[in-house]
Nucleic acid binder design. Structure first.
Lengths: 217, 217
DNA sequence: TTGCATATTAAACGGTCGTTTAATATATAT
DNA sequence: ATATATATTAAACGACCGTTTAATATGCAA
């Protein structure tokens, strides 16, 4: 990573914020520069183009997220499969609910999944491949499942419950989260119930996977 | 619903297609008119504005989806709770994978969830409220759960697994679906395994909800 | 035929987009 | 001091956006 001066560093950080909120297309140069307090031309001066700035922001935010959430993953050999599943679910959900810079990547990637860009094949493939392998290995250890299609289904069931909170982020933000009766009286803010949410997803998944032994309390 | 002549009907149908694929903002008048084979001004002639066209398309596609997938829901009184859950999951997943006009609404709403618009409060709230109530009632009957927060969690777990296939739609379309080892050898196309997918989600959810009282906990 | 409502469209409007250009400001080295 | 490399910015560019206008085409009653 090259050294960046103060201005270009500010632009990069603000670009991450705006890209994370709006996605590549909807995020405008003006939005980013307004947040960074710079002239619109400065983006083309420091970063060749909007496309290139996006790639830089993608790599930069991935670095922040990986450093913050997956450093403990290396010593996972000492954990039981159920504990590793909880670690995976907890990492993913916490990164989604993180409001700091370590949560930027999740939000950027989400837009990328919805509307893949030209650069998606380069940047999205490798990163998710590793994440996916991480989860697959856990489920194999948990269930001993050998049928690849059923393993695929199981991975989807686990991952979908985590990513759902990314899906409903803006519904929560705009106070549009759906509260049908009898839930219209529940003031549910996942940010304040993170531990309970994580516990529920873990239990639901372990039961769903038909894992009998419940370790990790 | 007023009578529409041939041109305006064509515009409405094409608008649904384009809005479903790109969302409101990214879909341009030119895109829609090119597909419909009309002049750009015709949209403002028949529909007052792009905003109004979007609302019309939203209502129109909802009508198509509801007619196609939820007509059987009225006689659900004769079904067991588990059968009703399967009916709900099946309806939702099939509407997501439907390539015909009855699948348009799901795709339009998905963009709405990601980036709520000004109109979201009017159109999105009522419809999802009813859908949500539909699922909540089933889960209450299934589990007898009385804690509202835990019920909320359960609803999310079920719904998230269904909506996940909407999330990954464009990854499949762009052949970007993630295939980490050992899955890189699995040629998985959900469209051709719909029944298996639905069965898995139902089983996973019933186990996750602890419906069959297997555990001694 | 003429008269008139309806349907269609080319052209232009003002606005924003990403980008480029050229002028200016700032800092450092000689 | 001057010279030079770097940093910053106002202005303009061409392209596309949603919308409006005005002219034209079409169908039908009188």
């Amino acid at each position: 990573m090259e050294n960046l001066n103060e201005t270009s560093q500010k632009i990069l950080e603000c670009a991450c914020e705006v890209f994370a909120e709006k996605g590549f297309q909807a995020a405008s140069i003006s939005d980013i520069c307004e947040l960074a307090g710079t002239n619109r031309a400065s983006i083309n001066y420091y970063f060749r183009s909007k496309d290139n700035l996006y790639e830089q922001a993608y790599v930069y935010s991935w670095g922040l997220t990986h450093a913050a959430f997956r450093t403990k993953g290396d010593d996972s050999a000492s954990l039981s499969p159920a504990e590793r599943l909880k670690f995976y679910i907890s990492s993913l959900i916490r990164s989604i609910f993180s409001s700091g810079p370590e949560g930027l990547f999740m939000r950027m990637m989400f837009h990328e999944v919805i509307q893949p860009n030209i650069h998606s094949k380069d940047c999205i493939g490798e990163i998710i491949k590793k994440e996916r392998k991480f989860l697959d290995d856990i489920i194999v250890d948990l269930t001993g499942e050998t049928d690849l299609v059923r393993l695929h289904f199981m991975s989807m069931s686990v991952m979908s419950q985590c990513l759902f909170f990314n899906l409903t982020r803006n519904l929560r933000k705009h106070k549009l989260e759906i509260k049908a009766p009898p839930f219209d009286r529940v003031d549910f803010r996942p940010e304040e119930h993170l531990d309970a949410v994580i516990d529920h997803v873990c239990t639901f998944c372990l039961n769903g996977l038909n894992v009998r032994e419940k370790t990790g309390e």
